[in-house]
Design a binder for these strands. Structure first.
Lengths: 241, 241
DNA sequence: CTCCTCTCGGTTGTATCCAATCTTAGCAAC
DNA sequence: GTTGCTAAGATTGGATACAACCGAGAGGAG
């Protein structure tokens, strides 16, 4: 009932296609970890949850398939992709290059105001992650997105929509809750993350494109390495039917 | 009749999903220019052509939508995306960076045999393009793909599947017949293209990652600029209902 | 002649139905 | 105990049916 009216209302409100809306919702469920990696996605169940029929659900799943978030086995349904560690490293090497380009481009376009926004975003993320690890803050989905704000801001400042999309495509391949967890759980990672962001920020403020790109590249590669290690060790979050 | 058996036979043969097969066929029609940019894709027509119902066609279209090749307007169907010139420039700036990374990586992994294969591919492409422009060779689809062989080979030598996919994703956004036409129609472009490939090849053979990356970057940027110019001038190939 | 409205043909969007395939439980044979 | 077969249940895949929406064009008012 509520699910149905909810879904339909959203579709009506935005005027956008219901299918795109469904894809977004399913993606969110995966990103937040509500649906763990390796889990099966049954069409009938999703259709029931959202109060629609299987037809639009199937189309939404096709979208998620081409974006790489899920894998569809013929006649056997869809499962959330389980990234292999080497796949994470490969992806993050690509992402590092793209974000380095974004940083270099951003140097020529960034304003003082935007530098301040970046600094604030970085500080806020650090404070929130600390509070989270102390148990002093709840796990709010909004702050989840805040985690990526630093990077998405730089990508948008870079002023190349295609570049931003390419970076986003990579990020949307890996559930976000995992990388967010890394920063929350390990204070060393959190501190390093904060300082690396500060160094990038400094290079941006100094107008040093070369250094901004290189700092960003190293930062992303390092983050990818941590994420890959996590997948190597704690593959325990993989759903096992 | 033929279309139906053809489609079903392919589906049975590969064991792959019919939907993926359909998406590939539609993509090909767009890539070869059989379906021009800006043209409407009517579901019933496609379903008839391939001898299937609209259901799998719609799922295939969703895949093409997320890959960016077509745009789906709610309740108004799908049209082949018409790239704006600035979008081409943005995309090729990203592609340049990715292919530069591929070239740099390839330096460390390339074998003598692969260098020769690249040289042969480049020469073959040049010869064929010349013959085509003289009218001495037919427009064979196989050679269309040959046009990209030089680049796809380097991407595969680079040994990063994610990187190869990212490059491919960008290329599949723009119909290939346009860029192929550029090389065939203009002898200056053809010669430049050939020589730039040779320079990249030389850097690869010399094991100079830095130079290979930079040559590749410049080469791709220049190709993107030519493609963008083409879209600026001859937007005449846009389908007008 | 122009503009507005309304209807109708065509197309897309969703739901439902049926066929095909996979999975699993049970049972029998070794 | 293990292996292999079989049949029932569940799930996906595709086709069809129906509803919703858009756009063109006829027709009338100004």
């Amino acid at each position: 009932m509520t699910a149905e009216s909810e879904a339909l209302a959203a579709a009506r409100k935005t005027g956008a296609a219901l299918v795109d809306d469904l894809a977004e919702r399913i993606r969110n469920r995966i990103m937040t970890g509500e649906i763990p990696i390796g889990a099966q996605l049954r069409q009938a169940e999703l259709a029931n949850d959202f109060g629609v029929s299987r037809t639009p659900v199937r189309e939404a799943l096709r979208q998620l398939q081409t974006s790489g978030l899920i894998e569809v086995l013929p006649n056997r349904g869809a499962v959330v992709s389980v990234p292999a560690p080497w796949d994470v490293r490969e992806a993050y090497e690509v992402r590092a290059e793209l974000e380095a380009l974004a940083a270099a481009r951003a140097v020529r376009r960034i304003t003082r105001d935007e530098v301040e926004r970046l600094r604030a975003a970085n500080q806020e993320m650090y404070d929130y992650s600390s509070a989270r690890s102390n148990g002093a803050a709840p796990d709010e989905p909004d702050h989840r997105r805040n985690n990526d704000l630093f990077h998405t801001l730089i990508a948008s400042i870079a002023g190349n929509a295609r570049l931003a999309k390419a970076i986003n495509d990579i990020n949307e391949t890996f559930p976000r809750n995992v990388s967010a967890q890394l920063v929350v759980s390990d204070s060393r990672h959190r501190d390093e993350n904060f300082r690396e962001h500060e160094r990038i920020l400094q290079a941006l403020a100094d107008g040093d494109a070369e250094r901004a790109a290189e700092e960003m590249r190293q930062h992303v590669i390092k983050a990818g390495e941590q994420l890959a290690r996590w997948y190597e060790l704690r593959s325990s979050t993989v759903f096992r039917g």
